[in-house]
Amino acid sequence: MTYLFIILYAITLIYFALSERVKKFVWLLCMQGFMLFGIVFFSLHKIEIFDFIFILTETILVKSLIVPWFLNKVRKHNQLKRIQETSVPVFFSIIVVVLSLIFSFFLSNFLNSNQIHTKYFTVAFASIIFGIYFIIIHKNIFSHVVGYLIIENGTFLLSLAVGSVMPMMVNLAILLDVLMGVLVLGVFINRIGDAFESTKIDQLSSLKD
């Protein structure tokens, strides 16, 4: 069952490359949250019950509900409907995401170490590469935050791949940090949207000498 959600997660990455509407980005982030929930639910039976419940709540509450809800609010505030400002045609983005998926699947085959759960590593690595790519090709700060969240989802999967090395307290702190980061970033998107009347990155280039 874990594989089902992993494959579905990979498909969400393809849809990220395909879609151009901001609304769809938020929706896909929400979907990714549910995929992560599924992955955790079907794979982490062995850990302690408290940790298990904590990670489940993290994925379902924070990743699939609170963050998308908040981003949706930000989107409505800035009246973002459609984003056409990709510097690369979608056609190539799809090829890039497919290549990164293939690469990371074969890389995890090559790793095959008993310290890493390579099944999570597959999509985790692809997700991180694609998140960085997503940030590079978009010219809108809202999409940049979406790309950041794709990277964060990738790191979450990577931490599953590594196993529960980190103590729960630190995990909790990291989660709070990310959440705070997204909230602060969202607030700043709103401020930029108010001050510059748009969220395009081109305007943010006055600090040069």
Binding site: I174, G181, V184, I192, L204, S205, S206, L207
Partner: peptide, 23 residues
């Protein structure tokens, strides 16, 4: 406005950078 720009860039790039460090 300049402060907004600088803050945004700093916050965003350092968040991404720290995500990389976390990896």
């Amino acid at each position: 406005k300049d402060a907004l720009e600088a803050t945004w860039k700093y916050l965003f790039i350092s968040s991404v950078g720290l995500a990389i460090a976390f990896i």
